[in-house]
Simulated scan of single mutants.
Amino acid sequence: MAALQFPCTIFTTQNRMDDYSAKDMRCGDLTEAQLKTHYHLVDVSTRANPYTLTKITPFNQPQSMFYGSRGEGEKITRQQCAAILFDEFRLLSRLFSVYGPYNHLIEKMIGHMQNGNGKPFRNISLDRALKDHILNDRTENSTMTKIKNALIENIDWVNKHYPEKDKDELRKAILSGKLPKFDRFQDNFNGMGITVHDTWATHITLKSLHISNDSYRAVVHYNVQDHFGLDVDDISKFKFNQFRFFRIWFVLQRYNQFGFKPFMTNMEATVEIIGGRNESKN
């Protein structure tokens, strides 16, 4: 009976890696009229009007009947307007990244959108966040738990290998669980919900499997990709549209006078799984 050879890709999502045709990867494709009419993006920024290219200034005189309201000020260039919007974008991001080791990531990613021209983004903190998520997921739907159970059930303990014919059992096990995503309650505040949240594509590879007596040690690699971009479905939802943060993001990305490019967010993690033949399933 043939043994599985390593490294072996045991799971891939239907969504492809590096899919630049995805809806949230579009940019610079909408007019002022479309943004205002279809997506109600009239009040975008408190600092600059992206449509008239003018600064928005408060009426600062307390004796004025218009005190506290906003008026349009000096004309600015498109580049100056974009810079003002990006500064406000960064400031508003702090609402979603209040604490934790990843709260600096969103400002880095906004800066990458402003200056990176669509190049993929990597950061060691993203890799660490992914690894922490995988290792600390104690739920029954954890992919680590699913892989562990599938290994225990399908290893040929007599011949000390994993049969190639049972490779699909690993894929089915992962499919029955939940892939690592940053949609937990804490991700609303720790910076990961706003930078990644859901993910687009995941590849899981069994890099090695060592079997001795009644125990095994497996090394598993996760390669995960997300898109830092918004599609029209996102901005059409009240939960996004209500926040100025997302209105500015959408206009910077999709308005045909700006067209700042979204980008691929790449992260990876390698974890070790140790188990035994007589372990009970979790």
Rank of each mutant, 00 (worst) to 15 (best):
M1D: 14
A2Q: 09
L4G: 02
F6H: 03
I10Q: 09
T12F: 06
T13N: 12
R16T: 12
D18W: 09
S21F: 08
S21T: 15
D24K: 10
D24W: 07
L30C: 07
E32S: 13
L35P: 05
H38I: 07
L41C: 10
D43L: 10
R47Q: 12
N49G: 05
P50M: 07
P50Q: 01
K55L: 15
K55F: 13
I56L: 14
P58V: 04
P62R: 12
G68P: 11
S69W: 06
E72R: 03
E72V: 09
I76W: 02
Q79W: 00
I84A: 05
L85Q: 08
F89Q: 01
R90G: 09
L91K: 11
L92R: 05
Y99D: 14
Y99Q: 12
P101F: 02
E107Q: 11
M109P: 04
M109W: 04
G111C: 07
N115D: 08
N115Y: 15
N117K: 01
K119R: 13
N123D: 15
N123H: 15
S125Y: 12
L126Y: 07
L135V: 14
T139E: 09
N141P: 02
T143N: 13
K148P: 01
A150R: 01
L151R: 00
N154G: 06
D156E: 11
D156F: 12
W157D: 07
K165M: 13
D168F: 06
R171F: 03
A173E: 08
I174Y: 00
L175C: 06
F185I: 13
F185K: 12
Q186L: 05
D187H: 10
F189A: 08
G193F: 00
T195N: 08
H197P: 01
T199H: 05
W200N: 00
A201P: 10
A201W: 04
T202K: 04
I204Y: 10
I204N: 10
S208I: 00
L209S: 04
L209D: 02
L209T: 04
H210C: 10
H210S: 15
I211Y: 03
S212I: 02
S212W: 06
R217M: 12
V224Y: 03
V224T: 04
Q225W: 10
Q225V: 04
F228V: 03
G229M: 04
D234A: 11
K237E: 12
K239P: 00
Q242L: 10
F246I: 01
W249A: 02
W249Y: 14
F250Q: 04
V251F: 02
R254A: 13
R254P: 12
N256T: 03
N256Y: 05
N256M: 07
Q257C: 02
Q257S: 11
F258K: 00
K261T: 05
T265A: 01
T265D: 00
E268F: 07
I274M: 06
G275N: 08
G276M: 05
S280W: 07
K281L: 13
